[in-house]
Every structure is written in structure tokens, then in C-alpha cells.
Design a protein around this nucleic acid. Structure first.
Length: 416
DNA sequence: TCTGGGGTCCTAGGACCC
DNA sequence: TCTGGGGTCCTAGGACCC
């Protein structure tokens, strides 16, 4: 059996842990740049606020209904996520961290009453971290996901115990709610009369294979209780790393875009060094604001193969700027840029270049020192001059809460 | 005025190898 | 009139996830 533990309205719950006044009130958390609604408390959902809704369309509504609004605070959420995972790891040897707010558990060798176990998890996680979670249990990951959805309506726990229960629950699961069925497949399936997970499980394998390839067949098996997706216990190294952002305000100035792109490249280099990999492909993209129909639009990208795979900030910045200058045209107002590194290989064993005469030892030492200083004194305390101040393009984050758990200055004070 | 960011997997098709 | 067979690797594009 698999369990899926899912934190309820995770980002909102994180905010509530440190600000109990938010309990019982409608609360939402916004995406980067304070753009869209990406987390909602139950009260906010009841008000009819939708996921991914642009917040500017709702400003007066939010005010009228006393909705509390927060910018996303990933430093806080990341740390809280780790605390939840730690608690789960005490219970179980086999935990797969599936996302920032979800974990799969393997319950196969657990000789205990699942109901009791689930209750225990619920209360312990709540006690240790302050975060409420729901648990869905089923014979496959796909069914555990479905059970988890049901758990949200039944007090936090739902267990699919036998085939009869499985049949009932998949009959009541709309096809678009199934893990792995997105918008496009939903449309296709509904067109073909497949409305529920149960309908899907009855489909002919050949039809499935032509329409949805191996993925479709796998989902069908999972829905019928045959596990095809194993627990991933080791977090695999990333195969690509991206840093992409919309600017706080639009700009036509190459200088500012250079600052932003350099900063994104440095960020990618830092992420590469952290997982001890080097990249040999670099992609830069820039584009205008796709929502503004009145302005001329442009959306360009350029990918280059680096002469030697690297995680050196200065080198990535150098090539990123070459690409950018290649793409940039003065007449547009740019809204977003991004840097993506690809073709990642291990730092210690990658394909060299016989013409490369550069001494990399010295440079590596320098980068390690910078990483250490920035870890201690704060991001970008030591940075490249080209990165600039960021005040022309940095994110809008007007409703940011404190970093309660990772920053001494933000720690909560108790007055007695 | 204002609409997020960061990933993965699968497949088809072309280039290339012996 | 007639020109092999069996592979791998890479990339772009489309789907998905949170």
C-alpha cells in the first residue's frame, strides 16, 4: 500500500503557523511578482476565489471581504516543508518527497492498523510543525492520490481497503482529476465519452496506446490497482536547471536586461555548484508582455553549446550576455527573461576539451569562497558588477511575511 | 498598471555509426 | 531493373506535474 501525505493549503498554513490571527479568516498567497493567486485557505475558496486567478482583477473584492493577502515566501515554505518531511521520516524508512507539500510513503511492510497509523501521523505532524495534513491510502500511487482528494472531505483520512471501495471511488472521480490526465487529455477523453476514472479503466488498451501512448496504459493499470510507478527514494540529480522571472516593471533598456540575465545566470551557476554538476548547454530567452495586445510582441530564445561544461558564474554570465546581445532589439518593451542550463554532468567526471588551457583550480577556489560568504552574509553580498542593483527589474513582493525560521532577525519575540 | 516559476517524461524524426 | 540492416544519439515539441 502507498500513502500520500499532502499538506492542506500549504502556503497559507505556513503563514498561519506564525500568525495565528489568520485562523478562520480568508487568506491567499500570490505567485512571484504578486501576480496570481496560488494558495487559498478554505474560507478563501468558499468566497469563490479561483486558483491562478490574476489578483489585480480581484482587488476590490479582496478588500470588501477582508481577505488577507501574502506574497510568496519560499524561504519560509521550503523550511517548513523540510520539517514536515523530517517528522514523516521518523515514522517511515521509505519516504519519497514528491513536491514541496506532498510525500509518498511505502506502507507495504507495515503490520499495523492503517487507520490508527494515519491518525498518529496527522496529530504528530501538526504538533511538530503546526501544519495540518491529509492522508490518502491505496494500492497504487495513482489511487493514493485519489484517496487523498477524498480525505480532504472526510476529516483528513481516507483508505481504499478493497476492490469494492476502489470501484466506488473511481466511479466518483471525474477524469480530469486523475493524476497524469491534464487539460489536453481530458478534452480528448470527454469527447470520446470517458467522463470518470472508472470509464478510463474500462478503455481498450490498443485505443489507449494510440491516443495516449504508454502513459495511458500505465494510468489504467494503476487505477485497477496494479502498481506501475514505484516509490523514488533517492532524489535524482536534476537534468536541467532554470532561473526565469518576469520583471517588476517592463523595460526597453538593454542595461537592465543585462543585469537581470546576469543575475539569473549566476543563480543557475549556484544551483549547479550546489548539486555538484556542470552544464554544457545554455539557453537564454526574452519576451514581451503576452497579455498586452496593443504592443508589438516578440519571443526569442537562443541555445549554445559551451566549449567546456562549467558551473562557473563568470563563464555562464559571459556566454549568457553574448546570447542576449544577439537576441535584443531596441524597439520592444520586455517583460520577462530566463536562463536555462541543460546537459548536466557530474562535476568530477565530464568531457573536457584538449584545447582548454584554463587553470580551473584557482577559479574553483574563488567560487567556493564566494558561495561560503554569501551563505553566511546573505544572497549576493558578493556579486558581479554587471548584476547591478536590481531596482529596475526585481520582483514585486509587497506583502512578504518574515522568514521566521531561517533568519535570526525575523524570529518571533514573546513578551511576558 | 496589474496575468508565476521550475521541472519531468515520451515520441518522432533526422543524423550518424558499423 | 536493380542499391541492406540494425542500431544509437540528439533534439524539438507536446504532454504532464506541483
Amino acid at each position: 500500500m502507498f500513502a500520500l501525505v499532502d499538506c492542506n493549503n500549504f502556503y497559507v498554513s505556513c503563514e498561519r503557523v506564525f500568525n495565528p490571527k489568520l485562523k478562520g479568516k480568508p487568506v491567499i498567497v500570490l505567485s512571484n511578482n504578486d501576480g496570481c493567486i496560488i494558495a487559498r485557505s478554505e474560507e478563501a475558496k468558499l468566497l469563490g476565489l479561483k486558483m491562478a486567478e490574476p489578483v489585480f482583477k480581484k482587488l476590490s473584492f479582496l478588500k470588501k471581504n477582508g481577505v488577507r493577502v501574502f506574497s510568496s515566501n519560499y524561504t519560509l515554505y521550503g523550511d517548513m516543508s523540510q520539517r514536515v518531511t523530517e517528522t514523516l521520516s521518523h515514522f517511515f524508512p521509505q519516504v519519497e518527497i514528491y513536491s514541496i507539500d506532498e510525500a509518498f510513503l511505502n506502507l507495504s511492510d507495515m503490520n499495523v492498523d492503517l487507520e490508527e497509523l494515519s491518525k498518529n501521523i496527522l496529530t504528530t505532524v501538526k504538533q511538530n510543525t503546526g501544519i495540518p495534513v491529509s492522508i490518502g491510502i491505496g494500492p497504487t500511487k495513482t489511487l493514493a492520490k485519489i484517496a487523498n482528494k477524498a480525505a480532504k472531505l472526510t476529516g483528513g483520512i481516507f483508505i481504499i481497503k478493497n476492490d469494492r471501495q476502489r470501484d466506488t471511488i473511481i466511479r466518483n472521480t471525474p477524469i480530469e482529476k486523475v493524476w497524469g490526465i491534464g487539460r489536453q487529455y481530458s478534452k480528448l477523453l470527454i469527447r470520446n465519452g470517458v467522463k470518470t476514472a472508472f470509464d478510463f479503466a474500462e478503455l481498450d488498451n490498443n485505443w489507449l496506446k494510440t491516443k495516449m501512448k504508454v502513459i495511458g496504459v500505465r494510468i489504467k493499470k494503476e487505477l485497477l490497482g496494479e502498481p506501475c510507478i514505484p516509490l523514488e527514494l533517492i532524489i535524482p540529480a536534476k537534468k536541467a536547471i532554470a532561473t526565469t522571472r518576469a520583471f517588476g516593471k517592463k523595460t526597453s533598456e538593454l542595461k537592465y536586461i543585462e543585469e537581470a540575465v546576469s543575475t539569473y545566470a549566476v543563480r543557475c551557476a549556484e544551483k549547479l555548484r550546489k548539486q555538484k554538476t556542470v552544464a554544457n548547454l545554455l539557453t537564454i530567452f526574452i519576451h514581451t508582455d503576452p497579455f498586452n495586445r496593443n504592443e508589438p510582441q516578440i519571443n526569442k530564445s537562443k541555445t549554445i553549446t559551451l566549449p567546456v561544461a562549467t558551473n562557473d558564474s563568470t563563464e555562464l554570465v559571459k556566454y549568457a550576455l553574448v546570447c542576449l546581445n544577439n537576441l535584443f532589439e531596441t524597439k520592444y518593451k520586455y517583460k520577462k527573461a530566463g536562463v536555462i542550463v541543460d546537459g548536466l554532468q557530474s562535476e568530477t567526471s565530464f568531457q573536457g576539451n584538449i584545447f582548454d588551457k584554463k587553470d580551473r583550480k584557482q577559479q574553483k577556489l574563488l567560487l567556493q569562497t564566494i558561495d561560503k560568504m554569501n551563505a553566511e552574509f546573505g544572497r549576493d553580498k558578493v556579486k558581479l558588477a554587471i548584476q547591478g542593483s536590481g531596482k529596475e527589474w526585481k520582483l514585486k513582493q509587497e506583502k512578504l511575511s518574515k522568514r521566521y525560521t531561517t533568519n535570526w532577525e525575523d524570529i518571533i519575540e514573546v513578551k511576558a
